[in-house]
Amino acid sequence: MSSSNKFKKEDFVIKKKDVSQFLKGLSDYTIYAPHNEDDTILFKAIVNPDEITLQFTNSVKPPKHIVLPQTETMLKITRDKEKGYKIDEPELKEKNILFGIRPCDAKGIAILDKVFSEDYEDPYYTKRRKNTILIGFACIDPHRNCFCTSVGGSPDSTDGLDMLWTDIGDRYYVSVLTKKGMELIKKSDTFSKVTSKNTKVKDQVHKTANDKISEKFNADALPKKLGNMFEDKYWDNMSMKCLGCGSCTYLCPTCYCFDINDIEYRDKAKRVRTWDSCQFSSYTIHTSGHNPRPNKENRMRNRIYHKYKYHYDNYNVLGCVGCGRCITYCPVDMNIKATIKELTKR
């Protein structure tokens, strides 16, 4: 998916007061950015740069829904008595900018890229993805539940990004990583050359953020360890408190399971693809009534196996970016960090 292979990376700075002007010049694009409403930070399509909040740790929902919407209309069918059936497919021409995405969530999108383009090219995802530019903001104040550095990421990781911006005081340090990113820079005269002092400050900001994630553990051993743990009693005990809701999976930047349904209404119908969650009992139920994952321990095991074994086996990368949302928002305080630590001890 990345076109950065032959691109020579370049760095710039932009004054904070000029950001609004830069964004206003991008009127060809829909800009999705973090927005604070009632203490809930979410990415939304913004009309005015004033709506953006950059004072945030991370959004409640990762912005993966910009490339993988929770509900995607794949086609619409209209029945006409004279003309018969008419089928409309979405054009997906919209050009998007994801402004202010955190490196962990961008890495999540890089993980989704492989899923939706390697074995089979999913036209909906890939079209959207091709038309989306990711402007990342280095994480400066990681949340206590963050553990990106234990799963191959970092607060300044560039995976999946077209640009990485770092707050260096009165300006942002802008690392341009792809041709797509450079094209945006060229549209504006608000960017200037970096000084060696700028670079020093940027490096220090990155280092400070990395140091703040004090808890580190090694998840690399998990794909192998899990190989022998399928029938372990551990799953029965650890999953007892799980409610079987889908908040961990729906708030996860790498979960991508979906379901497809046809919805009819009189002379109209649409085929929709919606997110699905392996934590729901209906997820694997067969038409026969047989459910291969009947209990929540089976479903919880699947979630952990997918993230730390199956995904690694298939794509050579863990299916977790360490954003910590599944800990923060779990109604029963399920702690995936504790799970990983416990599993690595075995």
Binding site: C245, G246, L251
Partner: peptide, 12 residues
């Protein structure tokens, strides 16, 4: 409109 239908409200 904010609901993501995770079912946490129902399951809890």
């Amino acid at each position: 409109a904010k609901c993501i239908r995770c079912s946490a409200c129902r399951n809890v």
